[in-house]
C-alpha cells in the first residue's frame, strides 16, 4: 500500500515533466500544423545551458536564464529556418525539424563532449523530504511537482483569460482573419514557438539533475513526447495533461510490478508448455511487464489511432 503511494508520486513527477514538454509542442502543432521533431532537443539544450550557468553562478540563476536563452534560440530557428521552409509544405517542415534534432545533438557533442555532465540539484533542495516505508522522496522532486503545476496554471490563465491568449487561440483557427484584423500573425507564430521551446528548456533545466545530462537525453525522450500528444489529441492542452499523467503512471507501474506474462496466460486458462526451452513462444512466456514498460506507450498510441484517430481529447482529425 505504501509502495503504491510512492509510485503514485513518482508517476506524477514523470507525468508532469512530460507535460512541460507536451504543452509547448501541442501549442506549436496546433498553430503551425507541424510536429516539431526537435522539441526534445530544446529540452536537452535547456539542461546543458543550465549546467554551464550553474558552474559559474549556481543552480538558481540557470533556472531563469537557460529557458530564456533556449526560447530565443527557438524564436531564431522559427524566424530564419521554419518560416523559410513553411512555404514548401508540411513534409519539408517536418523533415527540417528532424534534421535539426540531429544537428543539435552534434552541436552539443561538439561543445560538451560525449560524456555525462555532473549537473546536480541545488544544495538547498538536497535532502529527503519524506520517507515512506524506507523509500526516500527527495525534496527536489517536490520542487519539480510544484514547478510543473505552476507552469500549467500560468499557461491556462494566459490562454483563457488574457488578450494575448485570445489572439493566439484565434490565430490557431483562423490565421488569415486574424491577420486582416491587423494582428501580426508571423510575430505570434514566432512568439509561440519561442515560448514553447522555452517551456521545453525549463523541463530540461529541472530534469537534467535527476534524469542525467548527456547527449542521448533528447533521443530517449524524443518520440515519447509525440506519442503523448497524439494520444491526448493534437492541439488540446487538457488532452496533453491527461495523456502525460497516463503515460507517467503507466510507465511507473509497469516498472514497479513484476508481472510475468506466462502467469497471466496460465491464469486466463492457457496451458503452460511442458518443455519451455524448446517452445517457439518461450520468449513470450517469460516476458515481464517491466521488460515491455517503455514500449507500452507506442502500443497505446497505435491502438488509439486505429480506434479514434483524433486522440482522446482531440476535436479535429489531422
Amino acid at each position: 500500500m505504501s509502495l503504491l503511494l510512492v509510485n503514485l508520486l513518482d508517476g506524477l513527477v514523470t507525468g508532469l515533466l512530460l507535460f512541460m514538454l507536451c504543452s509547448g509542442l501541442t501549442l506549436i502543432f496546433s498553430m503551425m500544423g507541424v510536429l516539431n521533431f526537435a522539441h526534445a532537443s530544446f529540452y536537452m539544450l535547456g539542461a546543458y545551458f543550465a549546467y554551464q550557468i550553474s558552474t559559474y553562478v549556481g543552480f538558481w540563476p540557470g533556472l531563469i536564464l537557460a529557458p530564456i536563452i533556449v526560447g530565443l534560440a527557438g524564436a531564431l530557428v522559427e524566424r530564419y529556418g521554419l518560416r523559410r521552409v513553411h512555404k514548401f509544405g508540411h513534409v519539408p517542415e517536418l523533415v527540417f525539424t528532424f534534421g535539426l534534432a540531429l544537428l543539435i545533438e552534434e552541436i552539443v557533442q561538439f561543445f560538451w563532449g560525449k560524456s555525462h555532465m555532473a549537473y546536480e540539484p541545488p544544495a538547498l533542495l538536497n535532502f529527503t523530504a519524506l520517507t515512506i516505508a524506507g523509500n526516500g522522496f527527495p525534496a527536489y522532486k517536490v520542487f519539480m511537482i510544484f514547478m510543473a503545476m505552476a507552469i500549467f496554471l500560468v499557461l491556462l490563465y494566459i490562454l483563457t483569460r488574457t488578450r494575448v491568449g485570445l489572439i493566439i487561440q484565434a490565430a490557431l483557427s483562423y490565421p488569415e482573419t486574424v491577420q486582416n484584423l491587423g494582428h501580426n500573425v508571423p510575430l505570434v507564430f514566432m512568439g509561440v514557438f519561442g515560448v514553447g521551446t522555452a517551456l521545453a528548456g525549463v523541463a530540461g533545466v529541472i530534469a537534467g539533475p535527476t534524469l542525467g545530462t548527456f547527449p542521448g537525453m533528447a533521443a530517449v525522450l524524443g518520440s515519447i513526447v509525440f506519442v503523448t500528444i497524439v494520444i491526448g489529441g493534437l492541439g488540446s492542452l487538457w488532452g496533453a495533461l491527461a495523456a502525460s499523467l497516463l503515460i507517467g503512471w503507466l510507465q511507473t507501474f509497469a516498472a514497479s510490478y513484476n508481472i510475468v506474462i506466462g502467469d497471466v496466460l496460465v491464469a486466463v486458462g492457457f496451458p503452460m508448455p511442458v518443455n519451455l526451452d524448446d517452445s517457439a513462444l518461450r520468449d513470450l512466456w517469460t516476458l515481464t511487464v517491466s521488460q515491455i514498460g517503455p514500449i507500452l506507450p507506442y502500443l497505446l498510441m497505435v491502438l488509439v489511432l486505429v480506434i479514434r484517430p483524433q486522440g482522446l481529447f482531440g476535436k479535429r482529425e489531422t
Binding site: 509502495l3 509510485n7 513518482d10 513527477v13 542521448g216 516498472a255 514497479s256 517491466s290 517503455p294
Partner: peptide
C-alpha cells in the same frame, strides 16, 4: 529492463 529506453529508474529503485 529494456536497454537504453528507461528515462527514469526511480520505480526500479523503489522496488
Amino acid at each position: 529492463h529494456p536497454i537504453g529506453k528507461v528515462k527514469d529508474f526511480t520505480p526500479y529503485a523503489r522496488k
